[in-house]
Computed example of a mutant assay.
Amino acid sequence: MQPIFVDTRGLKGALAAFRAFLFYLNTFAWAGPLFVIMVFLTPYVLAFDRTRRKAQHFFNTLWAKISSFPFYRVVISGLENLPPQEQPAVYVANHQSFLDITTLFHINRDFKFVSKTANFFIPIIGWSMFLTGHIQLDRMDRRSQQKCLKDCGMMLERGTSVAFFPEGTRSKDGKLHAFKRGAFVVASRHNVPVVPITLDGTGDLMPNSREYLLFPGTVHVRIHPAIPPGPVDALTRAAECAIASGLPPERLAPEILGT
């Protein structure tokens, strides 16, 4: 597997750029017709399943799997640690790459992603996120942050899980960094478990800020035992430790190694 920071010159870089081109071509080719189906289903979904929107999530999952399987392999361990489908939970994962979102859909749980507002303006893909009811967040706007937490709480109260990348943004150096408290405030306040998930390999395949490259390889998804509801700081630290346990030491930032 390629390291996170790679020499992109020569044949290897050219092949990675070509693979990325094919990946995006495949992604948008499937996103179009699946989005049309989602649009036609919207009246039914809003009438009978306004919050969870399982039908829309099904097509999100189908799109993610079709987009990824020709280009990289996903190996999942710890499926027995997933809570039941009907159990609302806060899912948290480390964030290395653009591929993290498509990869997380492989665990076959319907949840609402917390995603930056700009992503909802991406043609077709962002629009499908809107139809599915994923949660918008402008990290620079305090009111947006407060609304995001409120929306997440509403989802949980109505039986719908939410998913966060608690580092707040994709890692710039490929290492796991300290978590922000928002996801754990939501879990503690609404008395739901936190499910930590380690994603290992997405940053090797498509490094952050080099989304024009896609290397072949395997992504390992490790689902850790759910953490029962508790104080915010304890939840944060427990989730950090769980996710860090699925990564080699060289992928941990000093603030993680030192605590």
Rank of each mutant, 00 (worst) to 15 (best):
P207G: 09
P207E: 05
N208H: 15
S209G: 07
S209Q: 13
S209C: 03
R210L: 05
R210Q: 14
R210F: 11
Y212G: 03
Y212R: 10
Y212Q: 08
L213V: 06
L214W: 09
L214C: 13
F215Q: 04
P216C: 08
P216I: 10
G217S: 10
G217H: 09
G217I: 03
G217N: 15
G217P: 12
T218P: 03
T218G: 05
T218L: 12
H220A: 10
V221Q: 14
R222G: 01
I223T: 01
I223K: 02
I223W: 03
P225N: 10
A226R: 05
A226P: 09
A226F: 09
I227M: 07
P228L: 06
P228G: 09
P228Y: 03
G230Y: 04
G230N: 01
P231A: 09
V232T: 15
V232I: 15
V232C: 07
V232H: 07
A234P: 02
A234I: 14
A234N: 13
L235S: 07
T236P: 07
T236D: 01
A238I: 11
A238E: 13
E240V: 07
E240Q: 14
A242V: 11
A242P: 00
I243Y: 02
I243G: 01
S245P: 02
S245W: 04
S245L: 05
S245C: 06
S245M: 10
G246F: 03
G246V: 00
L247Q: 10
P248Y: 09
P248N: 14
E250F: 06
